[in-house]
Write a protein that binds this DNA or RNA. Structure first.
Lengths: 193, 193
DNA sequence: CTTGATCTAAACGGACCGTTTCGTTATGTC
DNA sequence: GACATAACGAAACGGTCCGTTTAGATCAAG
């Protein structure tokens, strides 16, 4: 992020936490500033005062770096509601998620990750088998609870979840994250029937 | 596509249809072979035996080229079903669409276009305001007809359409276009309630 | 015959890529 | 205390692609 003056030398035969933090912070800042278009390992290295080999050592794919900087604090930033109905839970959670995507760097990171997955097999695999299962675990419980309450059959949990996910992807990818309450509510109603 | 031996000179003060065809064909072929990762204007020009300035003249953005090579024959390849219920129409149409995306270059083109839209503002605008309205007009009539039949309120047409679109985007972007009939049918059922 | 738009080729400066080489630093082991 | 080991940053590598510019050739339209 901020150009460090003094060189951050090796601290011996182990990973440097400072370097890791500097790289993540630089990546986050660069992405926030320039978006996915202006995101390059070269520039991250420059800003972090880190060597490119160091970055490539720890994050072999751009996807790995994206995943690393996608808020581990997402779960912290977005509380999991439990208000007694899927409808109100989803409304709340989706609103929070969209705000998170709008305000944080997170939306750009996520868009970048998806874009990267269209270019790189490794990124696609990381997205599908690492990122998504982790990130979907939390919202999924909303659907599980709803099924337990008898709002729908248990066999429909993942189908409904997937429709909700697709809906969100579409909106983030087309940069339509305005919090249009009524429009959002209508779609969520459909997902709860 | 195939490396033309003889140089295709100017045919005067008007656009050369042969060059246009050669560029589109080269772009299609390259995309089919290497995917979005290996897609560059430079390589398209090489294969088409065309000059880069020529390509940039007619397709200033990569997105324009993508749109140009996305089958204008999509509507021809995917008949619009009218079987009396949204459920069966959607099932048929979605199955056909996914096959189209799988078998033709179309899926890769589409994925490339979306990826490009994450990098370029111009591409995003083209996607949202040119490509989508055109391509969605046909499937939209399925929803309109269903509303006319009284399957749901007219005000829900675009909400349901959007959920369906998001569902499709999710599957094409994660390269999950296998024709899993039962899974597909379950989700379409949900969209028709 | 002139104007003007088109074509390809070639080259431009610049940005990144992902890798390699190098000298330095400190850890953990013997 | 000596030493192998692993991490660090800097610099440079060859390579690709970007988007633009220059130049010379072609041909339609006025």
């Amino acid at each position: 992020m901020e150009p460090n003056q003094k060189r951050r030398a090796s601290i011996g035969a182990r990973r440097s936490p400072e370097t890791e933090a500097a790289v993540k912070s630089a990546a986050r800042g660069l992405l926030a500033e320039k978006g996915y278009a202006g995101f390059s390992i070269e520039e991250v290295a420059r800003r972090a005062g880190a060597g490119k080999p160091t970055i490539y050592r720890w994050w072999p794919n751009k996807a790995d770096l994206f995943i690393a900087i996608y808020g581990a604090d997402k779960d912290a930033a977005i509380p999991l509601p439990d208000e007694g109905s899927l409808r109100s839970d989803l409304l709340r959670y989706t609103t929070d998620l969209w705000r998170f995507w709008r305000e944080d760097t997170a939306g750009r990171v996520f868009r970048g990750l998806i874009a990267e997955a269209q270019t790189s097999e490794a990124a696609l695999a990381a997205l599908r088998f690492k990122f998504m299962p982790e990130r979907l675990a939390s919202p999924r419980t909303m659907f599980v609870r709803a099924a337990e309450r008898g709002e729908f059959a248990a066999g429909e949990i993942d189908d409904r979840l997937e429709l909700w996910v697709g809906f969100n992807w579409f909106h983030v990818l087309t940069d339509q994250l305005a919090a249009d309450e009524p429009s959002l509510a209508r779609k969520i109603d459909l997902l709860c029937r």
